[in-house]
Design a protein around this nucleic acid. Structure first.
Lengths: 187, 187
DNA sequence: ACTCTTATCTACATTAATGTCAATAATATT
DNA sequence: AATATTATTGACATTAATGTAGATAAGAGT
C-alpha cells in the first residue's frame, strides 16, 4: 500500500470541492458522482463520504461554495466605486466568468433540496442600493426593470453567451463592447 | 394480469416523451430515469427501452422534441407581422413559457451528447432577418447586439425570471410590461 | 378465420453507484 | 514516549438503474 497522506479536514473538503467543480465544468452534472470525484481527487470514495456524509451532501456543499463565490464576485464588482458605464460590464463579467452560469443552470434543473437563499436576497439588496446610487434612477419601477434586464441578460449570457455570439457571427470587438452598449441603452 | 393496451409506436413514443417532460418540470433532471418515467406513464420500463433503445436514447429524443417545440414557438412568434413593440414581447413569451428555460438550462449542464444544432442555426437566420425587417436597424453590429440582448435576457428570464421578480419585489404590472419596456429601450 | 407483425410484459442479469464497517496510520496532544 | 484523535482506506453490503430474453397478446392485413 502506498504511503497515506493525511490532510486537515478543511484541506480535504477544499480539495474535493475543487475537484468536483472541475468535473462539473468538464462533464456536466453527470460528473458529480462520488466515485468519479474521489478518483480524480486521488482519494477513496469512502473518504469523500466521511467528509460530506453522502453524495447529496457533497453536491449541496458544492452548490453552497459556488453560490458564495458568485456572491463574492458580485460584491467585489459592486463595491468598487463604479461609473454607470462600468456597472453592467462588472456585473456581466462577474456572472459570465468562473462557471457561475453553470451554477445557475444547475439550480434551474435541480429537483429538490432548495437550500438557503438568504445570501442571495442579501446580494440583491446590495445590488438595488448600489444601482440606485450609481444610476440615479427616478422611479422604483425603472430601477427594478433595469436590474431585471441586466441580471437576466447576464445570466443568459453566462449560460449561452458563447453559443449565441457564435450563431450571430459576432466579432470579438462587438462582443467585448456588449456590456457597455447595454449600459448605454438603459442610461 | 390486467388487460394489455396496445398503442401505435408513435402514440407510445409521444406518451413517454410527454410524461418525461412533465417529470423534468417537476423533479428536474433526476426525474428522467426510465423506471420513473415508465411508472408514471403506466407502462413497463422494458417497453420504454423497446421504443428508445436506451435511457440515453429517451433523453436525446426528449431534448430533440423540446428543441423543436421551442423553435416552433419562436417561428410562430416571428412569423406574425409584428410591430417593434410586440417583437420582444413575443420572444420573451416564447422563451419563458412551456418549460423552454429548463431545456436551455439542461443543455448548459449536460456533459456529452452534443446533438444537432442545425435547426437552431436555421432559427437564428430567421430571427436575424425578421428583426432587421421589423426594427430597421442601421448597422449589422447593432442588429447583433439587439438580438443578443433580447435573447440572453429572455433565456435568463425563462430560467430565473420568477425568482428575480420576487427578489426585486416587482408588481405584476411592472413584470407584465417588462418585455415592452425592453423594446422601448432598444428602439 | 388465419397469419403476421410487433407492442407489451414478466423475470432475470448486469452494471454502477451509494453507503457501511472495522482496521490502519498520520498527526496532535499530553 | 505514550496516548488520543480522526483522516484514510479496502472490503463488503445494499440499493437502484439499466439492459436482456423469451413469452404473450393486441391489432392489422389477408
Amino acid at each position: 500500500m502506498a504511503v497515506r497522506r493525511r490532510r486537515t479536514a478543511d484541506e480535504s473538503r477544499s480539495l474535493i470541492l475543487t475537484t468536483a467543480a472541475e468535473r462539473l465544468r468538464i462533464y456536466g452534472l453527470e460528473g458529480l458522482n462520488i466515485t468519479g470525484v474521489a478518483e480524480d481527487a486521488g482519494i477513496s470514495h469512502a473518504t469523500l463520504i466521511h467528509h460530506f456524509g453522502s453524495s447529496g451532501g457533497m453536491r449541496d456543499a458544492l452548490a453552497q461554495k459556488m453560490t458564495l463565490d458568485l456572491v463574492q464576485d458580485l460584491v467585489v464588482a459592486l463595491d468598487a466605486k463604479v461609473s454607470p458605464s462600468e456597472l453592467a460590464r462588472n456585473v456581466f463579467a462577474a456572472l459570465s466568468e468562473g462557471g457561475h452560469g453553470k451554477l445557475l443552470a444547475w439550480r434551474a434543473v435541480e429537483g429538490g433540496s432548495g437550500q438557503d437563499f438568504s445570501v442571495v436576497r442579501e446580494m440583491f439588496g446590495k445590488l438595488l442600493a448600489t444601482t440606485q446610487k450609481v444610476l440615479e434612477v427616478d422611479t422604483r419601477e425603472d430601477l427594478q426593470r433595469i436590474i431585471l434586464l441586466v441580471a437576466t441578460a447576464a445570466i443568459g449570457y453566462g449560460i449561452a453567451g458563447d453559443t449565441l455570439c457564435d450563431l450571430l457571427g459576432m466579432s470579438e470587438e462587438t462582443v467585448d463592447g456588449f456590456p457597455q452598449w447595454v449600459t448605454a441603452q438603459i442610461g
